[in-house]
């Protein structure tokens, strides 16, 4: 197995002044990401995500532990590595503020020494996939957040990197922009087999883009596996909302499932249950035996809730 990202027991400490003390942002973290894998890297603010990303991209050296990214040591080989990775820092623009978007791509293309024909072909693909054509000639400062973020992603992918690191790429975007961005990232990965590491607060990003989720808390790995597995292992309750055809005061439910609210005079019932104990289908069958169901929906716990749950369980 070749690892795109191979972090072995890395620790990063910072010295903070006033009062003078050492803060451990990342604490003995081990993480391996295989070539071509897509990993969602989540955690609360301050959990150590950004510090880890800085260590993989060569911005920061770990205090202890070893880091290999695409077989290279990031800090000493930073400029070599930069040719093979694409990074988007959601909160910071890498585009030239006062230049048209097109010029930013031209500059980045020459920084990466792309052949003109290859660059033109790649840019055409990005313009089409991310729908950049309408604002390609506008100065970046005039773009909306959604337009700018698509530009940022295109800038990070221009040199066809083997590893793509996206730090909060969908923060602040509306639903349509988010969806467009996700669709393209899925397509591009399918075409080129890129490795993807994504940090986000949005569960849907992980669901759409990643096979694997790694949760960090206090600088350590708190969970590493599939998203479904995370939900099950945490026994976070799911919520089933049913709208009945005719009002009914009380629904009889199996042990463990409970009605948390009855609304609209007995029409809408909110029921909480654990996936490990009941399947949603069995629960629904039990309900339809008692009343006619007109409509239903399921609410999944948000990523933040999952992370909070992990915190609560740590000793």
């Amino acid at each position: 197995m070749t690892w795109a990202i191979d972090l072995q027991n890395i620790t990063r400490e910072f010295t903070v002044r006033r009062p003078r003390r050492v803060v451990r942002a990342v604490d003995d973290l081990t993480l391996q990401v295989a070539d071509g894998e897509a990993v969602g890297f989540v955690g609360a603010n301050g959990a150590g995500k950004s510090t880890t990303i800085k260590m993989l991209t060569g911005i920061l050296m770990p205090t202890r532990g070893t880091v290999r990214v695409l077989g290279r040591r990031p800090v000493p080989e930073r400029r070599h590595l930069a040719r093979e990775i694409g990074v988007v820092f959601g909160q910071r623009s890498q585009l030239w503020w006062d230049l048209p978007l097109r010029d930013s791509f031209a500059i980045l293309g020459s920084m990466h020494r792309l052949a003109p024909s290859a660059q033109a072909a790649r840019l055409a693909r990005l313009v089409e996939g991310l729908d950049l054509a309408p604002f390609l000639d506008q100065p970046v400062r005039q773009l909306s957040l959604g337009q700018r973020m698509r530009g940022e992603v295109a800038a990070a992918l221009l040199h066809s990197p083997r590893l793509v690191v996206l730090d909060e790429p969908t923060i602040g975007l509306d639903m349509i922009s988010k969806e467009g961005l996700r669709r393209f990232l899925v397509e591009d990965r399918a075409e080129r087999g890129t490795t993807l590491l994504l940090t986000t607060h949005d569960m849907a990003d992980v669901e759409r883009l990643c096979e694997r989720i790694v949760v960090v808390s206090d600088g350590r790995t708190a969970y590493d596996g599939t998203l479904a597995g995370l939900r099950d292992s945490l026994r976070t309750p799911r919520e089933l909302v049913v709208d009945l055809a005719a009002p009914l005061g009380v629904l009889e439910l199996p042990e463990g499932a409970q009605t948390v609210a009855v609304e609209a005079g007995g029409i809408r019932h909110r029921i909480r249950f654990h996936a490990a104990e009941h399947s949603a289908a069995a629960l629904l069958a039990r309900i339809t035996a008692q009343a006619e169901v007109a409509d239903l929906s399921m609410a999944e716990p948000a990523i933040e809730d999952l992370v909070r749950e992990i915190f609560a369980r740590r000793p």
């Binding site: 800085k54 991209t57 060569g58 930073r78 400029r79 040719r83 820092f89 910071r92 890498q94 990466h112």
Partner: peptide
């Protein structure tokens, strides 16, 4: 302070 330096560091140019 603004973190702009980080975006410069991930480019393959001095």
């Amino acid at each position: 302070r603004s973190g702009k330096l980080e975006t410069l560091l991930v480019r393959p140019v001095p």
